[in-house]
Computed example of a mutant assay.
Amino acid sequence: MLPRVGRYDRQVVNRRLLASLFAATKLVHSAAVMNENIDHHTVQKVMLGHGFNIRQPTPTPSMFENLDPKSALETFSVWLREHEEGQVMLASVIVVIGIWWFVRTILSLVLNLICPLLVVTLAVICVPQLRRPLMGENYPLLANLLRNILLKLAENLRT
């Protein structure tokens, strides 16, 4: 568990994490551009021979050079509007997260509410000594009421 820190400390940490994310993205992008240029240069060298003078390609401007969070969000939203596969990917992630939260809620409901009620019910049914302390003096009336309800349900199901 992370130690509790003040709001200001979290903002500083979040800014540093965001700056690290942008720096890592910029590094990956520049490595990909460099790799693309090297592969292109190598292919030209192999095809034309070593004696042929090959002009180095001009570096392409990086879209991550002057990136601030607002423009990054705008760039992402424009990209999302233009690319259908991005929309499908984002929708899939949202659906998976929604299903996870739904399953988690149902499991916590079962474990925290239904299981204790079943344990108490089974204890009352199986251990006669617990009936009087839990149900009090009204146990015979409650048992008859429950029996009548179950008989009515069975009769309705039969018809």
Rank of each mutant, 00 (worst) to 15 (best):
T105I: 08
E155D: 15
A32T: 09
L18N: 01
H50D: 06
W79P: 00
L142Y: 06
V28I: 07
N148I: 15
W79N: 14
K152G: 05
M63E: 12
M89I: 08
G6T: 06
R15N: 08
R16I: 05
T58S: 13
L113K: 11
A154H: 10
W101Y: 14
L134F: 12
Q87T: 02
M47G: 02
I94V: 13
G98D: 06
Y8A: 09
H50V: 10
L113V: 09
N37A: 06
V12L: 12
I125Y: 07
Q129W: 12
L141G: 14
N148R: 15
A91Y: 02
G98Q: 06
L150K: 12
R7Y: 12
I94F: 14
A24H: 02
V13H: 10
L117S: 08
A123W: 06
P59L: 14
S62W: 01
R104E: 09
T121W: 10
I54Q: 04
P69D: 03
A143T: 09
P133Y: 00
K152C: 09
L145I: 14
D9W: 05
V93F: 12
I54K: 09
I38N: 03
Q56E: 14
L145T: 13
A123N: 09
S108Y: 03
L90S: 11
H83W: 02
P140F: 00
I54G: 02
R147M: 12
V119M: 07
N138A: 13
E82T: 03
A123L: 15
N156W: 14
L111D: 02
R55D: 03
H29S: 10
L118S: 05
Q56C: 11
L21R: 04
N53R: 15
A123P: 04
S108M: 11
E85H: 09
L21N: 07
L130Q: 01
T159W: 15
V110Y: 10
A91C: 10
H40T: 10
P3V: 02
L107V: 08
Q44V: 00
F64Y: 05
V119N: 06
